[in-house]
Design a protein around this nucleic acid. Structure first.
Length: 577
RNA sequence: GCGGGUGUAGCUCAGUGGUAGAGCGUCACGUUGCCAACGUGAAUGUCGUCGGUUCGAAUCCGAUCACCCGCUCCA
């Protein structure tokens, strides 16, 4: 970041206009639109599917096949990456080990008064309340209270975490804070409007009589009186966050009977498929640490609020690398990946100050990254986040958290034997070292990448005949080139069809090569501008006599003339092949 | 999850109780020798969905769904 340059204006492009173009030109459609759509899901049309494939291919080629495009790692050696393609559905124990199932399946409350922000299930909080006896004697009033139709001042004085009422009672009876001050004549269960409570007469040390109640803290009480509920850990009031349902995991059933015994989950990240195959890859493919395993694929999360076009959707595709290295080298590799991934996005056209690299502060680090060398985000300033930014890719030092978890839960030996380390033996060879590798995880969002590229490419220039156009980098443009006969006569269509066939044969594996003879030449150029086609080749009268064609550049509108036989070489160079 | 807004042709939108419209785009034919050219013609609508009020609903009422914005949330 430079400090003396003027502030970049926020991204002022209109998201409505971008979405409109995406629909009009077949980039993105609302999923199952003819049925009214479905919240949080989007489909890609012909243009979008090819754009997305081109981005995925660029990643696959540059990261996996070319090992960071040939850039040497911090150890001075070529970067080694191998791909896998693992299942969306894994053994449910995978997600127990990774922590995805246990912590985030139920409404959770976070206790901000504890140093580490303890989190517990909302329905596991039980409160101990006291009511003056005269009120309790009026059972009608009490019933109204229990049904939530009226409030009487009976906020819990004390809370505990328990999964049942009985467990709560046991805990409270062992808690000096209550037993020191009160004597009880025995708790009995009462049920009012389906709500079960334990109630007892209580006598305070000074002789005052109360009704004591142990009850589960209801959602209603959270909503109304959360400020007054004391922390179960510290006793402080006003320290609980409202219950939040983290229905992160998509649940499904294996087999036709669909019973609770057959529960499985759609993966919330591709990473775990890599971790559980770490040993397989090490044992079968002659890789050695440091090396990475890469995977692209769909993941699923029940987002709280899917929003902002495709930015936060419930089904999305990731491009993930888990890079395994010796713990001592983790810092170097973290820096390497962070910088190279930033460079990669820039090279695809996300230049300028709409793209930033942001190092996380300590307090926002994920649980698995606390001990690590750091986490950073590559963020893009989308029109809907401006002047803020939205995450495109996260680069995290995950330490050995995941491998350690799987080692424990699966009781598998995942330690790596590194024969290049350890003290030297008598013969001068290292003795080797067993260790659990640390992991640097560059995890990118493919759909978010596509969205960023769409937003970046969208350009309005009122001075052009076609003001609205898409400035895709040629490498990811879904249509690579178009061939036109200037007019539909005099043998021009035949000549153009010939060139079209040749280009399609040579470059069709990279993207579409279009042929268009409909309507005026200006309209055809405009159509291609809107689809983001970088080059248009036009056959005119001269083509028939001297074998030259014109090539028009999308961004400048400039034309130049070249020999027809040079067209393929020209386009190949522009596409970087 | 809460609050606000929007929903009519592929896109942008008009239509406030009485025949479903415009511009652009698309397609066809003609014209056209390089930048959304011109002429003629054509196709395209569960008016988001369901229900109610009414002789009659795109229009009024209710519910619901989707999208947008703000809050919240996002290991």
């Amino acid at each position: 970041m430079t400090t003396d340059s003027p502030a970049t204006p926020p991204n002022t492009k209109s998201m409505d206009d971008i979405m409109s173009l995406c629909k009009r030109r077949g980039f993105v459609y609302p999923a199952s639109e003819i049925y009214g759509g479905i919240n949080g899901f989007w489909d890609y049309g012909p243009m979008g599917a090819q754009l997305k494939k081109n981005l995925r291919d660029a990643w696959w080629t540059d990261v996996v096949m070319r090992g960071c495009n040939g850039k040497l790692g911090p150890d001075g050696k070529p970067v080694s990456i191998v791909p896998v393609d693992t299942c969306i559905i894994q053994n449910p124990k995978v997600w127990e080990a990774s922590g995805h199932v246990a912590g985030f399946n139920d409404p959770m409350v976070t206790d901000m008064s504890t140093p580490d922000g303890k989190r517990f299930r909302a329905d596991h909080l039980y409160g101990f309340s006291l009511m003056p006896k005269p009120v309790a004697e009026n059972m009608q009033l009490l019933a109204e209270h229990l049904a939530g139709r009226m409030t009487i001042e009976a906020h819990p004085e004390l809370t505990v975490i328990a999964s049942t009422l009985g467990e709560a009672l046991a805990q409270l009876q062992g808690d000096k804070r209550s037993t020191k001050k009160y004597t009880f004549d025995g708790f009995q269960e009462h049920e009012t409007n389906g709500v079960k409570n334990l109630m007892s007469l209580a006598t305070r040390s000074d002789g005052a009589e109360y009704v004591a109640m142990i009850h589960q803290v209801t959602m209603d009480e959270y909503a109304k009186d959360i400020e007054k509920i004391p922390s179960p850990f510290t006793g402080k009031a006003a320290s609980l966050t409202p219950p939040r349902a983290f229905n992160l995991m998509f649940k499904t059933f294996i087999g036709a009977t669909a019973s609770e015994d057959d529960v499985a989950y759609l993966r919330p990240e591709t990473a775990q498929g890599i971790f559980v195959n770490f040993k397989n890859v090490v044992d079968t493919t002659r890789v050695s640490v440091p090396f990475g395993i890469a995977q692209t694929g769909k993941s699923f999360r029940n987002e709280v609020t899917p929003r902002n076009f495709t930015f936060r959707s419930r089904e999305f595709e990731q491009m993930e690398i888990e890079f395994f290295c010796h713990p001592d080298d983790a810092k170097d590799w973290y820096v390497f990946w962070r910088d190279w991934r930033m460079q990669w996005w820039q090279d695809l056209g996300l230049r300028g100050e709409n793209l930033i690299l942001r190092e996380h502060d300590c307090d926002e680090l994920a649980h698995y990254a606390k001990e690590g060398a750091g986490t950073s985000d590559i963020e893009y300033r989308f029109p809907f986040t401006a002047p803020g930014y939205g995450e495109l890719e996260g680069i995290a030092h995950r330490t050995d958290f995941d491998l350690a978890q799987h080692e424990k839960h699966a009781r598998a030996k995942l330690k790596y034997f590194d024969s290049t380390r350890g003290e030297l033996a008598k013969n001068g060879q290292p003795k080797g070292e067993h260790y659990l590798p640390h992991v640097i995880e560059p995890s990118g969002g493919l759909d978010r990448g596509v969205l960023a590229i769409l937003c970046e490419a969208y350009t309005v220039d009122e001075s052009r005949p076609s003001p609205e156009f898409m400035k895709f980098h040629p490498r990811i443009a879904p249509i690579k080139a178009a061939v036109f006969p200037l007019v539909k006569k005099d043998g021009m269509p035949e000549k153009a069809a010939e060139l079209h066939g040749e280009l399609r044969q040579k470059f069709g594996h990279l993207g579409a090569i279009e042929y268009d003879e409909k309507q005026s030449i200006g309209k055809r150029y405009a159509r291609m501008d809107e689809a983001g086609t970088p080059y248009c080749f036009t056959i005119d009268g001269d083509s028939l006599t001297d074998g030259t064609v014109t090539v028009r550049d999308r961004d400048t509108g400039q034309q130049e003339r070249m020999k027809m036989e040079d067209v393929a070489a020209f386009l190949g160079e522009k596409l970087g092949v």
